[in-house]
Design a protein around this nucleic acid. Structure first.
Lengths: 225, 225
DNA sequence: CCTAAAAGATAGTAATACTATCATATTTAA
DNA sequence: TTAAATATGATAGTATTACTATCTTTTAGG
């Protein structure tokens, strides 16, 4: 049995659904490769079109501009990650064990899970680390938010926040702690690899160390409260 | 007595020292205003030139491109903040008191301190919150780092890391905790104002709550170790 | 097999991100 | 004080980016 995992996307993010055609799937696939390779600033629809073997106009039929495409990719990632978390923490009763598993999933490198043919989750994870915050660090963040572009991210934070509250009902900052560990899992990874003196993991560069740091951070906060 | 605070900048960040002339100072002053008002993506040297009443070519004589200008501004900010911290924690002996003061300085809105005529620190603080991470979230981060563009940021993290270690010599992650609180002070501020459901401060929108959160986070980590 | 929709091909525009050149104004150092 | 050096202003030009428009050819579904 081969089943494709499908994440339902906000329709306002695209002009034509990229999952509905070969060209659309190619746009996603090659966009991930190109952004991964050259970074979001150097990424253009022209280069993407050349890479795919189509024309610029062809890309514009799917996405209004590259910002929307980035937001699409981040939304897809957060949706996918929420599913991963729900899948891998399913049947875990103890909230503390559950939260530990969540931290692991947030901080660990992702393997391309082959459940989705046109999205390389491993590359996408790297893109989210390096480019993800650019999706909301813009002047249009409030309009984008009004159109629910960040819903998958907010949903994921809510899920993590609820697990935190389950661990420690009296803890005062479950939502902030949730968004903190999600951001920090990525930032410490980026720093470890590019600005290692900002971390304590420069020598080994193991993400297991980030996991230990996050566990220490989270569980000392929760034990206290 | 009126004394101007002067921060020594890395010379590789500019082509001509903006602090050495009226035009240069105007570039800094108006760049801060424009980036604050329209965001870094919409900011161009052409608009900046028009705003100042000079020509595009005039700006290019000072800065190679807008990325360098952003890195300049962030470097200036981190240098300034390190000075603020050293100034305001001077004579505080107890490391715990010192660290509390540091967290306050990191998370609190900045008042324009009038010590520098051409830099509005309050606007610059807002720019760092919304645009600061774009200075290093690029493909050129390693080359930029080799040229020591991020030294002021790394120095500040080191200072904070040392205070953390003074509070709790056995704590295993002083550098990561330092970079974490610096980033989180800004991200929680951004979230509180633009994506409030990612925080627990949406109702009041007080930065004092961010300070409480950070204090709780940091000192429960340190007490444990 | 026919038709509607998608994709391809081509063209064009305004803005961005620069570089180059020459004239003029201003500093500064001999 | 004056000549030389340097900074600024004015103008022009190029390649690339970020689109929009139009027309033709494929392709897929009923």
């Amino acid at each position: 049995m081969k089943l494709e995992l499908h994440i339902k996307m906000n329709e306002a993010l695209f002009l034509r659904n990229p999952e509905s055609s070969e060209l659309g799937k190619n746009i996603l696939k090659h966009a991930i490769q190109l952004i991964f390779r050259n970074g979001f600033e150097a990424f253009t629809f022209k280069k993407l079109a050349e890479d795919i073997g189509t024309t610029e106009a062809g890309i514009y039929r799917y996405f209004e501009n590259k910002h929307k495409l980035l937001v699409y990719l981040t939304a897809w990632y957060w949706g996918w990650l929420e599913f991963q978390i729900s899948f891998h923490t399913n049947n875990i009763k103890a909230p503390v064990v559950k939260l530990k598993r969540v931290i692991e999933l947030l901080a660990k490198a992702v393997e391309d899970d082959e459940q989705t043919s046109y999205v390389n989750e491993s590359l996408l994870h790297q893109i989210i680390i390096a480019e993800g915050s650019k999706a909301y660090l813009t002047k249009q963040v409030s309009e984008d938010n009004k159109q629910h572009f960040f819903k998958p991210y907010k949903d994921l934070c809510a899920v993590v926040g609820n697990i935190i509250s389950a661990c420690s009902p009296k803890y005062k900052y479950p939502k902030s702690l949730a968004s903190t560990i999600i951001e920090i899992a990525h930032f410490q990874n980026f720093f470890m690899n590019h600005l290692p003196s900002l971390t304590d993991f420069g020598k080994t560069r193991q993400e297991s160390e980030i996991i230990s740091f996050l566990n220490d951070l989270v569980f000392s906060s929760l034990k206290k409260g």
